[in-house]
Computed example of a mutant assay.
Amino acid sequence: MTIDWSQERILILAPHPDDETLGCGGLINKAKRAGADVHVQFLTVGDTRDFSPAGLSTAEERYGEIKRVADHFGWDSWDIAFPGDDYHLRLDTVARVDLAGVIERYSSLSVAELEPTIVVAPHRTSYNQDHQVTAEAAHTALRPSNTRLRHHPRLVLSYEEAADQWRYDSCPAPSLLVELSDADLDAKISAMRLYGTQMHQHPHTRSEPTLRSLATLRGMQGGVALAEGFHVMRLLV
């Protein structure tokens, strides 16, 4: 299977700022280099207590990071559906009909408005509750129906993050590998550095050695040097 990335309009669903880079930063860079349109729908962002020296990353800091990463990759647009502390790390308190509705039609970056050819979402087996409900809402929003009445992206993928792998039975092996160049992986690492509040020293699931190791593993599984792994939810050829 080959993909002409120059012809694709890609919608990436990210529960929080940095998930799109962790899960598919290499794909983003590869697709943008080829001329694809790439749009990122964040679900939420807010203040976050963390293990950084400050002990807290603020929503204002995260917005600044998004803008720098968007410029770095050259995204065509991005949006945050549910901003603020009422939703951040609390998306599991939002009714799925509302989450699915934003993804399906009630957003400037919804499937109905954007009509993407490819949608990429988090995998449902993540330990993080915001990731889980985003994945399930995407599953609902992208459900099969009459293509004459609703837009159907021909390729729907779930991305993986290293943090998903810590429990051996939690996440199946990827069913699609996207080959990356050294430049694609370097761009992914550089973008994570721009997410300064989220990048960590090794050993951590969001460290540079972890990201490089996972790309090397997935590349080996495909017989190439580097790759990102995805789970196919729909492929129409």
Rank of each mutant, 00 (worst) to 15 (best):
218 R>L: 08
43 L>P: 10
60 E>Y: 02
192 M>R: 01
102 V>W: 03
73 F>W: 07
101 G>E: 07
186 D>W: 09
186 D>S: 07
228 E>V: 06
80 I>S: 00
22 L>E: 02
148 R>W: 04
121 A>M: 13
212 R>V: 09
195 Y>K: 02
12 I>D: 07
38 V>K: 06
117 T>I: 05
178 V>Y: 14
18 D>L: 04
28 I>Q: 03
64 G>T: 00
59 A>W: 00
114 L>T: 06
69 V>C: 03
120 V>F: 03
221 Q>N: 15
150 R>A: 04
56 L>T: 11
177 L>W: 13
98 D>Q: 15
179 E>G: 14
46 G>D: 02
199 M>V: 15
89 L>R: 13
57 S>H: 10
5 W>P: 03
176 L>M: 08
211 L>S: 04
101 G>Y: 13
164 D>H: 11
85 D>E: 10
57 S>A: 15
215 A>P: 03
44 T>R: 09
30 K>C: 01
4 D>H: 15
213 S>E: 01
160 E>K: 07
113 E>K: 11
56 L>M: 11
46 G>V: 04
53 P>F: 11
81 A>P: 02
52 S>R: 13
111 V>D: 03
74 G>L: 04
53 P>L: 10
191 A>T: 02
157 L>F: 08
23 G>N: 02
50 D>E: 06
198 Q>F: 08
85 D>P: 01
208 E>V: 02
38 V>L: 05
157 L>T: 06
156 V>H: 05
168 Y>M: 08
36 A>P: 07
93 T>H: 14
125 T>M: 14
4 D>E: 14
191 A>E: 01
220 M>W: 12
98 D>A: 14
228 E>G: 00
199 M>I: 15
58 T>M: 10
173 A>D: 15
43 L>N: 11
45 V>D: 05
